[in-house]
């Protein structure tokens, strides 16, 4: 027998990442996610030219209402919540679980693929919106680059956290990961992000908007919400992402995934 030694965790992670990205690239979810992202971006840009609004204001509005309020929730539901759940449901996860790779590495590999795809789409959308809004004034493209850069940072960061949440619910309840993730986003992210007072600090979306510099100090009840430094918000989002992915890895480590049932 010439059975090889078990792979190093980094090598296994790299293989899993490539496998998951290849499957995403050839699958339907990524195409759907791309279409939705482009559609929302295109609608915003079209509105800017239809109304003749100022590019800076339009850009901020698209980031705020299109990307932070819609796309950043939709993409993790599409790309992350099914990353494990679909494999559990179709039982293809069997092929990975029988490999000599720690289950936490399998979980992190799938998570990284979904999070990278989501963050890439969001950052691409930010760039498309920026170029689209300033297409008529190319000289201002670089001049006004700070807002899109901060928005890309905030969106990219929160994408990693949201994908970890989606993956956790996918591992925990493979039958309904999208519904559970959507409910969590609705209650703990969207609703908590608009209630007055310190409750807004629960919402990672609030922190991501803080990182992006998009929090409106004039908005209703915002005076009751404690101010937080952007870098503190960034740390909070990063810590939340790590916490959620650890929780997901724990579920994967100990779960049977209903594999024994017919």
């Amino acid at each position: 027998m010439t059975t090889p030694d078990r792979p190093a965790p980094i090598a296994a992670l790299a293989s899993l990442l490539r496998l998951s990205l290849l499957r995403l690239w050839r699958g339907r979810q990524l195409k759907l996610a791309l279409a939705i992202t482009l559609l929302v971006s295109a609608i915003g840009i079209a509105a800017r030219y239809a109304t003749g609004a100022a590019p800076e204001a339009t850009e901020k509005a698209i980031f705020d209402n299109g990307l932070f309020l819609v796309i950043v929730y939709v993409l993790p539901i599409l790309l992350a919540s099914g990353a494990l759940a679909d494999e559990i449901d179709s039982r293809t996860l069997t092929y990975l679980l029988v490999r000599p790779v720690p289950r936490s590495v399998i979980c992190i590999g799938k998570y990284l693929a979904a999070a990278l795809a989501t963050a890439t789409l969001l950052v691409a959308a930010v760039l498309v919106v920026h170029v689209g809004c300033f297409a008529a004034h190319p000289a201002q493209l670089v001049e006004h680059i700070e807002i899109p850069l901060r928005a890309a940072g905030g969106l990219g960061l929160v994408a990693f956290a949201y994908c970890a949440i989606g993956l956790f619910f996918g591992a925990l309840v493979a039958e309904a990961p999208s519904i559970l993730t959507a409910l969590w986003f609705l209650l703990m992210e969207f609703a908590a992000g608009i209630v007055p007072g310190p409750f807004r600090l629960i919402s990672l979306n609030h922190h991501a908007q803080n990182v992006a510099g998009l929090l409106d100090a004039e908005s209703s009840f915002s005076q009751y919400t404690p101010a937080v430094e952007p870098w503190t918000s960034a740390l909070i989002v990063a810590a939340a992402a790590a916490g959620w992915i650890c929780a997901g890895a724990l579920v994967v480590r100990f779960s049977d995934f209903r594999f024994g049932r017919a």
Binding site: P4, D5, P7, A11, A12, S15, L22, Y95, R99, P100
Partner: peptide, 12 residues
Amino acid sequence: ELVTFMAELAGF
């Protein structure tokens, strides 16, 4: 691709 990935994850 399938068998290659499985071989990589087996340690090759």
